[in-house]
Amino acid sequence: MNNPYIPYPVVIKDITIENDAKDLKSFTLAFERQEDADAFDYMPGQFAELSVFGYGECPIGIASSPTEPGILRFTIKRTGRLTRELHNSEIGRKIGVRGPLGNTFPWSEMEGRDVVVVGGGFAFTTLRAATTYMLDPAHRKKFNKLTVVYGARSPGELMYKDLLAQWAKSKDIDLVVTVDAGDADWKGRVGFVPAVLEQEAPASKNAVTLVCGPPIMIKFTIPVLRKLGFADRDIFLSLEMRMKCGIGKCGRCNIGRKYVCIDGPVFTYEELSDLPQEF
């Protein structure tokens, strides 16, 4: 029987700096053993506990899609001790990964419907995974219109710039990129995500929306979505909590009776409204 506390050994294959401030880096990891890669069967929305020996573990949303086989990608902001150590790492370093953990975006519910993806800041990581998955030729036909609204504080803070350029050219996706404040070179949209979303006014009929962002963005996006006609049960949010075990045993990450690590991190706005507002 597998011990759920033991991480799979992985190697850092690539490190990409994602923003001008250089405090956001994407790590591409490869499993050392094929059987671990096979066992790590995940869908976008899920997270994993990244393990750096001597520093501990931290829960990070998976930024890659299973349509990018053989690797896992995580985009991590340098915040505390462990993330700082990761940022100081070099390609070839061995770390560990435990997972996949948590629930996924509601893939079966999303089939046959429009999908509106709304992301802000570095919370866009699992939305990258979701969008990549939907755009994959093997899956694209399952979903109807795909709209993505992604915003960052400034042009330098936008992540996945190469991918965004690709998406901008694609007919399969309606991409709107915005920044809170532009700079001398920025020729794109300027405006806060909730405002831009309201301007874009994606149709809410037969649509589902995936929203990830800082609390302040969520606070102002929800009223816009409701105004556009999205039902609370069709608004999906991804939450964060301090975690340790990731498997519902250590008692740390609960909101009311729900544990963010097993009942989440994806919750509908309807579910969240029913829970005690303690997050």
Binding site: Y5, F53, G54, Y55, G56, E57, K244, C245, K249, C250, G251, R252
Partner: peptide, 9 residues
Amino acid sequence: HCFDITDEV
């Protein structure tokens, strides 16, 4: 039953 997981090095 709440617990913590830490690394010692």
